[in-house]
Design a protein around this nucleic acid. Structure first.
Lengths: 260, 260
DNA sequence: GAGTGGTCTAGACCACCCC
DNA sequence: GGGTGGTCTAGACCACTCT
């Protein structure tokens, strides 16, 4: 086998290709390279928005063919972690660019195009993690957290009341002023201020009756049915870093989802 | 270019590869092959559950390399239209196999694993399409439709009240008995009985207060907040063929979604 | 062993972007 | 013109399944 004759093989060509003697694991080369690329992203070797080395360079670095690197990058691009731009290069995805600004926002008008909301911040408070938040974010019960409350306004109408909870250890010195200044989405702000990028999220949706606070901020009667969206967002390595609860007034707006 | 020297090229190698003289369209070969495969699926050349020809055979048929066929099949597999099984072949996906039985059902328990519900059918009625349904299914206003009502029961508790509307022209002679007999999911039944497979769906979620019927079937008080899920399901060629409205009691259960 | 999908390679050439 | 990603090919070999 050719690979076994290489000098200083950068990767485990042999073990990866060998029959399955000692265990159920078989890792294709492109998978190993995907992991190496992910580790470089975690280590911050390439920052959000920056270009990573060209396919040829990476192929040389990892001692594999361009096609194998391609397949690794393809997988990361499919997960929205990298972005390919023909003729220019491959870039680390970012929430800062306008196109991906509200990538995770699934609330859209019943009719017409997706609309970008404006944000009214209510307050930013420090507190202790509830059992629910601590469980979601892998924190100790009572760990210090920062909670952001805000209202998302669509076409002059308040539609979503959000509470966003972050570990104060991971995101120190958050203030309402800094967030306001940043403009753009929260994730864009966290990315540029703390270098932490959200790559995926899990949501759970259910119906609730509006409580006093929700009724007040969304300008509806108490007990109005609201769509409640709980979210946990993850950064590289499937590390949960944000807990969020959104209360949505689904009158003229709804949560859109595609199933495949 | 080699392709241009082939005898009786089955595909538009040249035009597809030529510079962009007359128009903005550039169709890679694998894309054209993907379309051809889709057309064969629409035509019923291979039925759900059956194997399609091997990659080598298809490569010979289309006069392209195996790699190009692979890329076309990869795309269809990513859309859950085909299923690859190493060592066995590539198969037309089906809702009948247990693993994909409830692929589109996103309601799961707040805690614990995904559960498969049991179904209680209420009635099957013939009627005329409302403006909403007609618009969703590309039917004329008042076109004949068949409506199925049912309750999905999770762990002995009724959780979802569904109304499913189908064109009577496309799905003739639907009766509650036939549906009951079929067991398994509705999509599995429609697939085997009418040869029509759902490949994707769009959903819109919002919160409502339980009306009299919902309260009755879900055993809750009127005005209990419910999660309402409107769905339009599509078959090959993005043709809408099912309209559905589900009212879900989100107590102990919620709608789960992953964002990437 | 024969047949299927899956991996990896090497090389040619195209499309796109920027200098 | 030179660099980047994108397409296509041909061939070798591996992993899996069935007979």
């Amino acid at each position: 086998m050719l690979a076994s004759m290489r000098i200083q093989p950068a990767l485990d060509h042999d073990a990866s290709m060998a029959p399955n003697f000692s265990g159920p694991s078989f890792r294709p080369l492109y998978d190993q390279i995907k992991i190496l690329l992910t580790q470089s992203l975690i280590a911050g070797e390439w920052k959000p928005g920056e270009a990573i080395p060209s396919e040829m360079e990476l192929a040389a670095r990892f001692q594999v063919s361009q096609g194998t690197v391609r397949k690794a990058i393809d997988a990361l691009a499919a997960e929205n972690i990298l972005i390919r731009r023909q003729g220019k290069g491959t870039f680390v995805a970012t929430h800062t660019e306008p196109k991906h600004q509200y990538r995770f926002l699934h609330i859209i008008p019943d009719k017409g195009e997706k609309v970008h909301p404006t944000t009214n911040f209510i307050d930013v408070k420090r507190g202790k993690a509830s059992a629910e938040v601590a469980g979601a974010l892998d924190l100790k019960n009572g760990a210090p957290v920062t909670a952001i409350r805000r209202v998302l306004v669509f076409a002059e109408v308040p539609i979503i009341l959000d509470e966003i909870v972050l570990s104060s250890a991971l995101f120190p010195n958050l203030t309402i002023e800094k967030i306001r200044e940043s403009r753009g989405s929260i994730y864009s702000f966290l990315e540029t201020s703390y270098g932490l990028r959200m790559i995926r999220a899990e949501e759970r949706l259910y119906a609730v009756a509006a409580d006093n606070a929700a009724a007040h901020h969304l300008l509806v009667a108490e007990d109005t049915p609201l769509l409640c969206v709980d979210r946990i967002a993850f950064t590289y390595g499937d590390k949960p870093v944000e807990w969020r609860r959104g209360l949505c007034l689904t009158q003229g707006y709804s949560y859109y989802n595609e199933l495949a």
